[in-house]
């Protein structure tokens, strides 16, 4: 438990959302990453839950605030609040249920409609341990991810396979995007990129750089 406890001393705070159809294993991915726990008897998620965990990326401490929501269509009313300030997303489907993969397109559209264009997206095929029940091939998912320019990984929250990798990869990529922006801004504050940006340091934004001089000066 101690090893996973979120430390209040961090350099970056990134909001990451978990999305995907009901029952694909979003909550167990989150509990595996944040507490190294998995439950076969877990209940359906009501509304929104979230958990945090800090990891090291290069020499920085990155605190991930991961939001998990109910997959049911009914809860889509909370969408805009759910996505606000998110800089990363894990779009989860269940490799044993093809329909959850078919719905990935809808989720992706909703995600892109509500978030910054720089958001880091990873397509996650969960329940990869259920080899005999597989209904979505790795190739199909990989091809889809390439077409949509998202990252891709197959995971098993039950076997703890690739869960750490998936989250770490997303957080590292966000770190790269954000630190590159900070660097650009540091070089020439007047040359801030136009249009949509990740609002680093913005007050109403959940994700923020805590100790980067460029934004406060």
């Amino acid at each position: 438990m101690g090893a996973y406890r979120a430390d209040d001393d961090y350099d970056y705070l990134f909001k990451v959302v978990l999305i995907g159809d009901s029952g694909v294993g979003k909550s167990n991915l989150l509990s595996r990453f944040s507490r190294n726990e998995f439950s076969l008897e877990s209940k359906s998620t009501i509304g929104v839950e979230f958990a945090t965990r800090s990891i090291h990326v290069e020499d920085k401490v990155v605190k991930a605030q991961i939001w998990d929501t109910a997959g049911q269509e009914r809860y889509r009313a909370i969408t805009s609040a759910y996505y606000r300030g998110a800089v990363g997303a894990l779009l989860v489907y269940d490799v044993t249920r093809h329909v959850t993969f078919e719905n990935v397109e809808r989720w992706l559209k909703e995600l892109r409609d509500h978030t910054d264009s720089n958001i880091v997206i990873m397509l996650v095929g969960n329940k990869a341990d259920l080899r005999h029940l597989r209904a979505v091939s790795t190739e199909d998912a990989k091809a889809f991810a390439e077409k949509e320019s998202t990252f891709f990984m197959e995971t098993s929250a039950l076997e703890s396979m690739n869960v750490e990798n998936a989250f770490t990869e997303v957080l590292t990529q966000i770190y790269r995007v954000v630190s590159k922006k900070a660097l650009e801004a540091g070089d020439d504050p007047a040359a801030l990129p136009k249009g949509q940006t990740i609002n680093v340091g913005s007050k109403d934004d959940v994700s923020a750089v805590k100790k980067v001089g460029c934004c406060s000066s």
């Binding site: 009901s22 029952g23 076969l40 008897e41 877990s42 209940k43 359906s44 049911q72």
Partner: peptide, 13 residues
Amino acid sequence: HQIGLDVIRTDRT
């Protein structure tokens, strides 16, 4: 199907 997905996750202990 949503009901089914939740039935298999209700009080399973």
